[in-house]
């Protein structure tokens, strides 16, 4: 019991230390530009202003990048859930020629580092005419074999009796998948969905390579260009990082438990 108080204080101190960079970014963003470069630094601004945010919104790029991120991350999540759960069901429940061989091929892909494929993948995107398109950003991110593996493992654990009952009612395979297995798999679908969304929302490297049209940039790629376009206007740079980083942090603040479980469950296996 004697160790309880000092360790609690240590925990809180570390938590506050971990908040400093973000707090400093927010603090900078509500100062007038002149005050951001003052020495010594001030934590409490002399003048509180939202000018930096007005400036960022007036420039107009950030809302568009948020929109693009939502399209890409949303598209990747929905399509990954659809394609991976269908495949996982096929591998879990049905027997077809070449199945074991194909599943081994999928498993092998779990070890492949996508970063090592950027060059041939880009070359292929040129051939397919997908450079500078939403599909060019979305499609390669759907090749996530680990999600098939996670979902198959979960489906394997669902007793077959439920489907046999549905079969007695004349349900087709697709029907059994859709109305029996999927509803019973909500926790794992949520985990895979959360993990996929977070990863896709924050993905920098691939969208950065495949998109150069500013109108198609996602938040991580677009923000990479502000350093040069805003020059030394630190308040505006920090305002754009706050807006760009906010969406997932707010979701996390409200749905902490779900996000933790999603990232933990799917990430552990990925």
């Amino acid at each position: 019991m004697r160790t309880r108080l000092p360790l609690s204080l240590l925990g809180v101190a570390l938590a506050l230390l971990w908040l400093v960079p973000l707090a400093w970014a927010i603090d900078t963003s509500i100062k007038p530009e002149g005050e951001t470069t003052r020495v010594p630094v001030t934590w409490i601004p002399d003048v509180f202003t939202l000018d930096a945010y007005r400036g960022v919104f007036a420039a107009g790029d950030l809302p568009m990048w948020l929109f693009n991120s939502a399209i890409v991350a949303g598209g990747v999540t929905v399509l990954t859930l659809a394609a991976a759960s269908l495949a996982a069901y096929g591998f879990s429940r049905l027997d077809f020629p070449g199945k074991n061989w194909l599943f081994a091929l999928v498993l092998a892909g779990i070890m492949v580092p996508p970063q090592a494929l950027i060059v041939p993948l880009f070359h292929q995107m040129q051939t397919l005419g997908l450079v500078d398109t939403y599909w060019g950003m979305i499609l390669p991110q759907l090749a996530a074999p680990v999600m098939v593996f996670i979902l198959k493992k979960f489906f394997d654990g669902i007793p077959r009796e439920y489907e046999q009952a549905a079969e007695l009612d004349g349900a087709s395979r697709l029907r059994m998948f859709w109305s029996v297995v999927l509803p019973m798999s909500r926790p794992v679908l949520a985990a895979v969905g959360v993990f996929t969304f977070v990863t896709a929302w924050n993905n920098f490297l691939w969208p950065f390579i495949v998109v150069s049209d500013p109108d198609l940039m996602t938040v991580p790629v677009g923000l990479g260009t502000v350093q040069s376009s805003y020059g030394l206007r630190y308040a505006e740079i920090m305002a754009s990082t706050v807006i760009g980083g906010l969406p997932l942090v707010v979701v996390y603040a409200f749905l902490q438990r779900h996000v933790i479980r999603g990232v933990g469950d799917a990430g552990l296996k990925g």
Partner: peptide
Amino acid sequence: LLRFSFFMPFLLPVTV
């Protein structure tokens, strides 16, 4: 507080 502050940075895009 601890769970929020330790995990929150992981949710920020690398550019931020």
